[in-house]
Design a protein around this nucleic acid. Structure first.
Lengths: 200, 200, 200, 200
DNA sequence: AATGAATGAGAGTTCATTCAT
DNA sequence: TATGAATGAACTCTCATTCAT
């Protein structure tokens, strides 16, 4: 593994542990087993290192989403979405401190927002991928016709996102209940809340 | 308005503008039109000021949720939830930089987590309130019986939460589409995704 | 007791506890049960308060020394000096943190040295008083003739002074061994170190 | 000379001049001709610098005391003690502002007392060394048998200690009278105060 | 005379960044 | 290319003193 990668991994570790606000170049260099000078031989600035760390997030989820189009028409829609939901929950949980930290410095966000968007790295990508998948399933008649695939995608990923946020806030670990959480979400989402017409 | 309040409001403004990481006591004092010393006559530390700012968040949403039990059995369930969703979206959007910033310093979170929990100030309160409301409506027969109220609450608030996060990330403003967003979510949630049985 | 006295006593307490460097007007006012403003209605400055505290030190020793001339020719010289030594040890022990603290701010010492000297408040007064007493006893033939009363006084008080310093440094309490210490000092001082002539 | 040493020397100079209470890191850095940041690359804190300054005190006296055992049986006891007394007077005079300053912050003393004791750096070391030397001379018959070597040591060093304290207090310089002072002390100590028996 | 909120200068400390080696 | 000592600007926080009440 090259030094650049080692530095990015070290930075990720340090930010996970201490938080972005308490991460220092000295500590990152220590964990990467190199000098602080080497940080600046490989990256423009500490900010630059952080950006590379950010890019490495949600890797697992993105992989699942990349494979999603192939799932179209196979297994059940709910099964396919469960796979997505679990991956989302895991990655959101893992990356939350990093992703959330960007709001602690709006200037940083401002400087790099265009870059994120042009490289299609925003956190909305996942939602769009799920939405696209659901459109396809709708065309296949495997999902109700007159509902909004975007809303469905937002509910699945949004509930996972908020759950990850709240777990981190409460210092909860992400244990086996993750499967049950996603399962309950999807069950409810597929059934709908509406009472039978005669009782409405 | 007392100086304490002015300081908290100034701190909120500054953190909204510059982010927690770039907020300085000097700037907060400047905006509050007092000396830095006065910050420390009124609060133990900068951290203490931040905590008071945090406590003032989600006020509007909490008010709507407090009124929710009285809504039980009135209007339609979907209308009642729309009110909640819109308030959530607005408050989440407004507070996101503040709430997310806490993850930039896990030490800070660690020091105050117990306080948050004991004062019931965690971000999960909203979800619990909506869940409780939906349980009641279920008993009234205004919602399908065999679905999970918690999952429904998580989807509504989770999608609003993530939408607020993404809007902030993309520098989007929260305009009139907020109503449409919540409406679509609830429409989809009430209908359910499941295809008609004969086509499943 | 008037407010002025209460403030001086409070200041002494606080300086004893926290040290001059960590003593604040806020704390002194709290202990004196008055406002910080009252400090400045009664004294020119914090420095002024400290000077008044200093003047109150070594009261017990000075009293003993004042009575010393009357002791002349009574009891034994050694007994009279023991009384002095014990009083010195006690007062030095008690006042050491205060007296020593003045060296932490030479500017303060410089500003007030002339005042100390003109009011005859220096720490050398005690030595002079003992020296004067010993001169008298020498005239009475109760002490060896050709020795230096000043040196004797310096040895008695000096050893007590340093002992008090070292006790404070080591966090030792001034217990019953104080009598033994002074007794040993005086025994040795009276006997002299010189070997018998035939062995010298 | 390394930067660390330069910083310690600069700190000693500054504390000698301004006193511990008025010594600032800015001034120390200025005198050491380095940045304030360098202070913190070389020491944990300003307190840490002060501790290193303290450790460097009484070097000359300690050297004389280290050589003392070799003096045993040579020259006269009084000559050997004069050398000790003069060194003590000089070092006490020089170090008094530094040593005394530690009492201006009992918290500091508390934090490091164990360290001082375990490293055998307390101010009592000198007394013990002289006491040990006198014991040896007693065995050689060069000093009166039935007197207390500890008391003798305490009188010699104590009188020098207090003399140094008073000189500093009075802004007196330590001139050539230092030899006379020590000489008088020792003369008196060796002779003893006791009147001839027939006159007692 | 008594108050205590407000002040602001200045303290110790941190840390991203540089650059001579 | 790798280093890490040196930097200095910027930070949070303290506290003696003032003054309107």
């Amino acid at each position: 593994m090259g030094l650049r990668e080692r530095i990015v991994e070290a930075a990720e570790q340090v930010i996970q542990m201490k938080g972005l606000a308490r991460s220092t170049t000295k500590e990152i260099a220590r964990v990467a087993e190199c000098s602080e000078g080497s940080l600046y031989n490989n990256f423009e600035s500490k900010e630059d290192v952080f950006l590379h760390v950010l890019r490495g997030q949600l890797k697992n989820l993105m992989q699942v989403l990349t494979a999603l189009p192939e799932r179209k028409g196979t297994r059940t829609v709910q099964e396919n979405l469960e796979e997505v939901g679990i991956a989302a929950l895991e990655d959101f949980y893992h990356s939350m401190p990093l992703m959330a930290s960007i709001f602690s410095d709006p200037g940083l966000l401002l400087r790099h927002r265009k870059g994120f968007i042009s490289r299609n790295e925003g956190p909305h990508r996942a939602n769009e991928a799920v939405e696209a998948y659901l459109c396809e399933e709708q065309l296949l008649g495997r999902m109700k016709e007159n509902i909004d695939p975007k809303a469905a995608a937002d509910m699945l990923l949004g509930s996972c996102f908020q759950y990850a946020f709240q777990l981190r806030f409460m210092d909860g670990e992400l244990g086996e209940e993750r499967k049950r959480f996603v399962h309950n979400i999807l069950d409810t989402l597929f059934q709908g809340l509406a009472a039978k017409k005669d009782t409405l």
